[in-house]
Design a protein around this nucleic acid. Sequence first.
DNA 1: CAGAAAACTGAAAACCTTTTCAGCTCCATT
DNA 2: AATGGAGCTGAAAAGGTTTTCAGTTTTCTG
Lengths: 328, 328
Amino acid sequence: MSVGIKDVAIAAGVSPATVSRVLANHTVKPELRERVETAIRLTGYRPNLSARRLRSQHSNTIGLIVPDIRNPFFTTLSRAVEDAAYKANMRVVLCNTDENPTRETMYLRLMQEERVTGVIYAPTRETAAQLDRLNFDFPVVLVDRHGPSGKHDSVILDNRQASAALVEHLYARGFRSIEGLFGNTSSTASDRLSGYTEAMNDRGLKPHADFVAPNADAAAIAARHILSRKDRPEALIASNGLILLGVAQAMQELGLQAPDDIAIAGFDNEIWTGLIGSGLTVIQQPVADIGHSAMRLLFERIETPEMAPRVVMLSGKLIERNSSKRPG
Amino acid sequence: MSVGIKDVAIAAGVSPATVSRVLANHTVKPELRERVETAIRLTGYRPNLSARRLRSQHSNTIGLIVPDIRNPFFTTLSRAVEDAAYKANMRVVLCNTDENPTRETMYLRLMQEERVTGVIYAPTRETAAQLDRLNFDFPVVLVDRHGPSGKHDSVILDNRQASAALVEHLYARGFRSIEGLFGNTSSTASDRLSGYTEAMNDRGLKPHADFVAPNADAAAIAARHILSRKDRPEALIASNGLILLGVAQAMQELGLQAPDDIAIAGFDNEIWTGLIGSGLTVIQQPVADIGHSAMRLLFERIETPEMAPRVVMLSGKLIERNSSKRPG
DNA sequence: CAGAAAACTGAAAACCTTTTCAGCTCCATT
DNA sequence: AATGGAGCTGAAAAGGTTTTCAGTTTTCTG
C-alpha cells in the first residue's frame, strides 16, 4: 500500500516517534534527522492528514460559507481568505448556500464534523437570527453581515453610512425623487435600507424602497417595472452589485441611458461599473480588507478564546462617475 | 470532551459497532436503530470525519486547483464543481495557484496528503508538461487545459475551432488586419493561438500575435501599446476574459470606441461584455457544463479506474455584438 | 571526575472510527 | 428433531499519526 511513518522509521533505522519529530521540527539529533530526511525522500513518504488530525486534534481547516461565490464580492472575499489561510498553513473548504437556510444549517453541521479550526460566514438574516441559540465548537467570524446581537466577531461595512452617502450625493446633485432597490435576505440589505430611509427623511424626502431577491435576474425584472413606470424616479439606488447589474441590464433592454433618462448609483465597484456607458457611480467596498480582517479576527479569537466579541466596521468609498450627473 | 460514538453506544445500550451501522445505514434491527437514533439526538453526537476517513480510507474530498478564482471562468467552474460535489456528498478544497508552478506542486502535494478522492485541475503549461512523469494516487481530471498527451481525462473547449470562428467572423465582416493578444501560460492560449494563426494563413492573411500574462492589468498595458501604434490593426482579438477586460480598459483610457476606431472580439461571455458600449462580440464557453462534465469524468474514473483516458471537447458559441461590426 | 541537569529517543497509548470475525438467535428445511 | 443458513450483534483489531512517559545518552557544573 502507501508508505507510512512506520516504513520511513524502518528505512531510517529509528522509531516512528523520531520521524514524527523530524516532521514537526522538534529537537532531533542532526545525524538522525539527516537519516530520516533521506528516508523520507527515498520512500516518497507523504503524511496522512486524516491520521494527523485525528491524533493531534487540529484540523488546520477553515470553512468559508457564503451565499454564492459567483457574487463578485464573495469571489474576492474568498480569494483573500484563501490567501490568508494558506499563509497560515490551513486549507479552505468552500460552501455555497444560495441564501438557503437549509443548506446553511447542513454546512454548519458539516463544519462541526470536520472539526474545523474556524469558520468565516455570511449568514442569511433568517439563520443569523438564531445564531445566539446555536452553539458551535469552533469560532465563527461573521462577514459582510452581522448577527442578532454584538455577540459575534464580525467584519462589516458601515452600511448605513454608505447608503446615506449615496443619498447625500444624489441630493447634492439635485435629485429629489430617489428610489431604492434592496435585497431581501441579508442584514446588509436592511442596514442599507435604513441608512437610505434615514437620509431621505433627514432631507424631507419620501423614501420609496422595493425589495427583491439579491440576484441579477430578479433585480432586472424589478428594475424593468420601476423603469417603465409613468412616475419613475429621477434616481435609482441599487443595494448591491448583483442588483446593480440587474438594473444595468434592464436599462439596456429598455434603451435607457444614465444619467440622461434616470440617475443610477449603487454598491460594489466591480470592474464593469467603470466601463459601462460613461461609468456607474458606486460605493466601493474594501473587499480584500474585509477578508483579511476576518481571518485576523479568527486567528486572534483562536488564540484568545475568552476575548470579548469585536465588530470591525470598515468604510465604503464613494466613486463618483457619470451615471449620477445632473442631466442637461 | 466532545461526545463520541462510544458515548452514544452507552446511552443506547448497544455496542459502538451498532451505532456505526446505524450511521452507515447498514442492516440493524428496527428497535435498536430507534434507540440509537434517539441516543444520537439526545447526545448531540457528530461523527468525527477525520477518524472516519482514517479508518475507512475514503476522504470524500475533491480538490479544485485553479489559477485564480477571481477569473470569472473559474468562478463559474468552481460553483459547478461545488454543486456536483455537494450532490455526491463530497467536500471541495479550493486552491488558487496564480499560474505559479511552485504553488501548483505544493498544492498537488497537499492533495496527496489529504488523500483526496480526486482532483479537478487547470494546470499551467509548465506543470502540464511534466504531468506524465508525476504519479498521483488519485484520479485527476484536467479542465480548460490539456496535458502533454492524451493520457489524462480532460474537458476542454475546442479552442482552435473557436479561435478560428472569431477570425472567420471578422473576415466575413470585412476586416483583414487582425491582431491577436494571447496569454502566455496555458495550453488553452496556445491552442487559441494556433487556431488563429491557421485561420489567418488559410485566408492569406498575415497573423500578428502578442503575448501577455493572462490578467487584466498586463493586458491593459499591452493593449495600450497596440492601440496607440501608428499601424494599429483593424481588429483585435483577446484570447480570454481577463485579457478582453484589459483591452476594454485600455480602449476607455484612450477614448476609443469599438467598432468605430477598431473592431474587438474575444473570449468569454461575461455579463459585462453585453453591457459595455454597444456590446462586445465574444465566444461563449459552456462553463457550467465544463465543470459538470469534469465531475462526471472524475466519478466515472473512480468507478472504473482502468478505463482509457477520455477527452471531452465542447464547442464555444459565437455571440455577435456590435464591437465587430464593419464601421461606417 | 562525580553528579546533576539537559537533551534526546523509543515503546506504547491515544485519537475515533469502521470493519472483520466469531458467536448467537431464530427460522426454514429435510 | 437435527441441520443449515440467514440475520444481527459485539469484541477486538485496524487505520496512521502524535504525544506521553520513562529511560538513555550527552553536556554541564562545581
